[in-house]
Design a protein around this nucleic acid. Structure first.
Length: 445
RNA sequence: CGGGGCGUAGCGCAGCCUGGUAGCGCAUCUGUUUUGGGAACAGAGGGUCGCAGGUUCGAAUCCUGCCGCCCCGACCA
């Protein structure tokens, strides 16, 4: 994309309403525009990041064998009356009446609707296990939305639901989700720590939250620093193998890691003192095993091998897709702007033309731009008639992980500059080699 | 929902206390010179001062009501 043809409204000054760094940068870099309290438009650059995150979540779900579908944002109140949550959910649920006076609601989550779909079609244990998920906008009328997309009222969430014939199988699903979530966050360049948590209003006995460590996090967390060293990296995971999944879960749940809700000071004190950490974290996902809570209330039963009708075992799992955009910025930025991990960056590389209008420089930029596109890469070419400083400032702010700087001085020696946004390290090399190097970097992302 | 604060040009702000021609910086447009870390000069455009009432000869300014937004708290992906 050529910047002169793109829509990238960057701001030099910080809008007054933004307090935390991710919110400030999201506004300044032209990612979002607030439409109302806790409700945002996603501008082109922000949408690209959101879609990248969504794509990673989607791909990792399917690798784990989970099945995508799409449920509506508006739901009938009747389903929620069945589960008893229409009254229980409270003011957070946005209730709407249609022209006939029927009660609708903008879905804050989908346990009821997925259970209804399930019970309509599945009646035998032979059809189990199944995990269905969707990535859809939710609405929760929070008392106090804040921090931009980190606590919006409207937000994009992946929510999934597993259906199993018995407890053992449901717990396998729990493990499978934990592992697939670890993989998902790793691909985004995030360190998200699974922590034993409280199940809250969704209910259930087993639950972990995934937290990204950040000063601005809303949760207080306590953990053994050993957990920071754990990585899936290039480990081959076989989602069909419950034993392997169990081992990985055991590995990640062995070090102490809890939120303040479940924190146990006595247990925490058993961690060697030099590894005992407390900090703040942003919750970017949660997995639950809640057994038959919804299936019993809503009559979702299957016939088991013994011919008895039993309520199906369930769990649910969520990833805050839109929140992750903010969480990634909180975890990865500096005083100049955002630093996107390669996995989610809106453009793979920025090209800065230092002497717009100079025939040789323009031609070199055009060649690099075309070369990158030919290799399937998505570059952003700053072809504005601005001075170098302004172009650098824009690139630093929007945070593309790599920048190719092209100017007459370098071209005289046949080289351009390739700069890492994260480290600031730069190397001079011929244009073709810069293109190849970018291609190599992204070949493994 | 309780407590605190703010609404003046696209953005950031001053002016309000003490009523009298609506200002500054950035951004935008035109021109010239510039061009390796947010250029300089000259000129130009842009605001029913959140909305509605009221007081007054006169309201951005004083009064009342409403709306919007921000921060702290309890609640939450």
């Amino acid at each position: 994309m050529r910047l002169t043809r793109y829509f990238l409204p960057v701001l030099k000054e910080t809008p007054a309403e933004a307090q935390i760094v991710s919110h400030r940068y999201m506004l300044r870099a032209g990612l979002i525009k607030q439409a109302a309290v806790g409700i945002y438009s996603w501008l082109p650059l922000g949408l690209k990041v959101l879609r990248n995150i969504e794509r990673i979540v989607d791909e990792e779900q399917q690798k784990a064998g989970h099945i995508p579908l799409l449920m509506p944002t508006l739901q009938s109140a009747d389903l929620w009356r069945e589960s008893g949550r229409y009254e229980a959910y409270g003011e957070e649920m946005l209730r709407i009446k249609d022209r006939h006076g029927r009660d609708l609601l903008y879905g804050p989550t989908n346990e009821e609707m997925i259970t209804d779909i399930f019970r309509s079609y599945v009646s035998s244990y032979r059809d189990l296990p199944k995990t269905l998920y969707h990535i859809q906008w939710k609405f929760r009328d929070e008392m106090r939305p804040r921090f931009g997309v980190m606590r919006g009222r409207e937000f994009l969430m992946k929510d999934g639901y597993n259906f199993d014939v018995d407890r053992e199988s449901a717990l396998e699903a729990y493990d499978r989700h934990m592992v697939s979530y670890l993989r998902t966050y790793e691909r985004m360049g995030l360190k998200a720590i699974p922590m034993r948590a409280d199940s809250g209003p969704i209910g259930g006995e087993n639950t972990h939250e995934f937290l990204v460590l950040a000063e601005t996090g809303e949760s207080e967390v306590f953990y053994d620093s050993a957990i920071l060293d754990l990585q899936l990296a290039d480990r081959v995971v076989n989602y069909e193998d419950p034993n392997q999944l169990k081992e990985i879960v055991a590995e990640w749940t062995a070090p102490y890691a809890r939120t303040d809700e479940t924190h146990d000071p006595a247990l925490f004190n058993e961690v060697p003192e030099e590894r005992r950490r407390s900090s703040r974290g942003i919750e970017v996902g949660q997995i639950f095993y809640f057994g038959t809570k919804y299936s019993e209330a809503m009559g979702a039963t299957v016939t088991n091998a013994e011919g008895q009708r039993v309520p199906v075992e369930m769990g649910s799992h969520g990833i805050g897709v839109s929140r992750l955009v903010g969480a990634i910025i909180e975890a990865s930025h500096d005083e100049k702007g955002i630093i996107w991990p390669e996995g989610v960056t809106p453009f793979h590389v920025g090209i800065v033309n230092l002497r717009q209008g100079d025939a040789e420089t323009d031609a070199a930029c055009a060649g690099i731009y075309a070369g990158l596109q030919a290799l399937g890469l998505d570059p952003l070419y700053d072809d504005r008639n601005e001075r170098a400083g302004a172009k650098f400032a824009t690139m630093d702010l929007i945070g593309l992980p790599w920048r190719i700087t092209v100017g007459p001085k370098g071209l005289k020696n046949g080289v351009v500059e390739l700069v890492s946004r994260r480290t600031g390290e730069s190397e001079e090399l011929p244009p073709e080699q810069a293109v190849e190097k970018i291609a190599r970097i992204y070949a493994y992302i």
